[in-house]
């Protein structure tokens, strides 16, 4: 565990806490894409089936359990507990446009044609684009609550920090995984536009709104 990965994981945990806090404190999931959250639940479920087959560390197992549990808890909050506040009319991105290509790509580009490995590969590809329904929702409404923008900033930073971790591991441990790296770079690139607006608006105390 190097400093970049630690900060990346911390950022990921922070994102999840901010998300749950936003829903709980405002008693509302307005502005959140349930479809992105469904995608994240699928990502964690398919990636962490290895909880049953391989043990890395207590930290690793606990983190996996927390990610899986929190993703389903978030779905419960959006689709059941605070369903009345869910912005379903604007959350219209078709998830199958992400699921199908990611599944096909995982079947074609993978390290080994084996169930657990294919599920891991699929989850890596899906995670890289899972935020698209959320960004699509914001582009439709043209705005995001400040706390939602903090959530997105944390979530976007996490994979960006993982890229630094991969660079570090390449040089120090001669370890690299091209599938994780290319998907991670794409994932981070998708946030760039958001990062720009976050830094130029939210940090300066303004509301997050798309330029007219």
């Amino acid at each position: 565990m190097n400093i970049f990965r630690f900060l990346g994981d911390a950022s990921h945990f922070a994102a999840i806490i901010i998300l749950v806090l936003k829903i709980w404190k405002t008693r509302s999931c307005a502005g959140l894409s349930g479809r992105s959250q469904i995608a994240f639940a699928i990502v964690f479920t398919t990636r962490y089936v290895d909880l049953l087959t391989s043990y890395v560390s207590l930290y690793n197992s606990l983190a996996k359990i927390i990610f899986i549990f929190s993703s389903y808890a978030t779905l419960y909050l959006i689709y059941f507990r605070f369903k009345a506040t869910y912005d379903g009319n604007h959350d219209t991105f078709r998830l199958e446009f992400l699921l199908v290509p990611c599944a096909l790509l995982a079947l074609i580009v993978n390290h080994r044609f084996q169930v657990v490995e294919l599920l891991w590969t699929f989850s890596i590809y899906l995670e890289s684009v899972a935020i698209l329904p959320q960004l699509f929702l914001i582009s439709k409404t043209g705005e995001a609550e400040t706390i939602t923008s903090h959530y997105l900033f944390s979530l976007g930073s996490y994979r960006g920090l993982y890229i630094l971790n991969w660079i570090y591991r390449y040089y120090v441990q001669n370890y690299y995984d091209l599938i994780a790296i290319s998907a991670g770079v794409l994932q981070t690139l998708l946030y760039c536009d958001f990062f720009y607006l976050y830094i130029t608006r939210v940090i300066k105390g303004k509301a997050f709104a798309l330029p007219a």
């Binding site: 990965r5 391989s54 890395v56 983190a63 990610f67 580009v109 080994r112 971790n165 370890y175």
Partner: peptide
């Protein structure tokens, strides 16, 4: 593709 390594990342 190269052999998969142990997946120690999240």
């Amino acid at each position: 593709c190269k052999e998969p390594q142990i997946k120690d990342e999240l």
